[in-house]
């Protein structure tokens, strides 16, 4: 989903940058608040960022005969809510833009918008929706990660189609073209990401019950339900 350096016309590059900036600023604020109020969550924050680091470096072959990589943003969005993921995703994208010539500074705004904003929010929305419908936690986690991954690549397709409409068939023609490159390739990878996120969440459930309960992912089993509801309101 990385739009290469210089591959978005200046007006588009600026527009996506302007669109992304408030999310990242708000994210930085949420992140500092989280760290100040709950210093013990720093470790898990680091682990969520690390998950994005690993997954976005993993280029995997797909059914279309090309390679792509997952994003790893679903996990952090579930644990710490999307604003914080906007920051962690931006850090990953900056690392790749500066050291790997993967993505770029001029396209950072657009890439942040797809991977660090829309992906986490879409995944989080799915998570909330399924949790409310009493779907088992792990099924919820799978679909949240799947949607976070796939929506990111759909947004990239839209961004490129807006910047480079097909001379004949216009925006929709270009969307079909970029969609077949990105979105179709991404479907099996989104499944992989879903499975890996479930794996990490299973390990977290085994190892960090207290943390997950505080974050509202696990419902406190021995306490009365009202206890967790007040926490949900407080967040």
């Amino acid at each position: 989903m990385h739009i290469a350096e210089g591959f978005l016309p200046p007006a588009h590059a600026v527009a996506w940058g302007v669109a992304s900036a408030p999310f990242v600023v708000h994210g930085v604020r949420s992140l500092t608040r989280e760290v100040r109020e709950h210093p013990e969550s720093t470790l898990l924050l680091g682990a969520s960022g690390a998950f994005t680091f690993v997954l976005s470096a993993l280029k995997l072959p797909s059914v279309t005969g090309s390679c792509s990589h997952p994003t790893g943003t679903g996990l952090g969005a579930i644990l710490f809510r999307p604003p914080i993921m906007a920051v962690l995703g931006t850090i990953t994208l900056l690392f790749q833009a500066l050291l790997l010539a993967h993505g770029g500074l001029t396209t950072l705004g657009a890439n942040v918008f797809s991977m660090a904003i829309v992906g986490p929010w879409a995944g989080y929305a799915v998570y909330k929706l399924l949790r409310r419908s009493n779907v088992p936690l792990m099924v919820t986690v799978f679909f949240a990660a799947f949607v976070a991954d796939l929506s990111t690549y759909c947004v990239t397709s839209v961004q490129l189609a807006l910047a480079f409409p097909d001379p004949g068939s216009g925006f929709l023609g270009a969307l079909g073209k970029f969609g077949s490159i990105f979105a179709v390739t991404q479907i099996p990878l989104a499944v992989s990401e879903g499975l890996l996120t479930v794996l990490v969440m299973r390990l977290l459930v085994q190892s960090s019950k207290g943390e997950l309960t505080r974050l509202g992912v696990l419902v406190a089993q021995k306490q009365a339900r009202t206890g967790t509801e007040t926490e949900a309101v407080g967040r």
Partner: peptide
């Protein structure tokens, strides 16, 4: 099995052959 990011670049040059990237990576 090339990267889809690279394929998108190729698609851009097909859609708009005269497009020149206006910025190149610092490193």
């Amino acid at each position: 099995f090339t990267g889809s990011d690279g394929e998108a670049e190729t698609a851009i040059t097909e859609l708009k052959p005269d497009y020149e990237p206006w910025f190149s990576p610092l490193y």
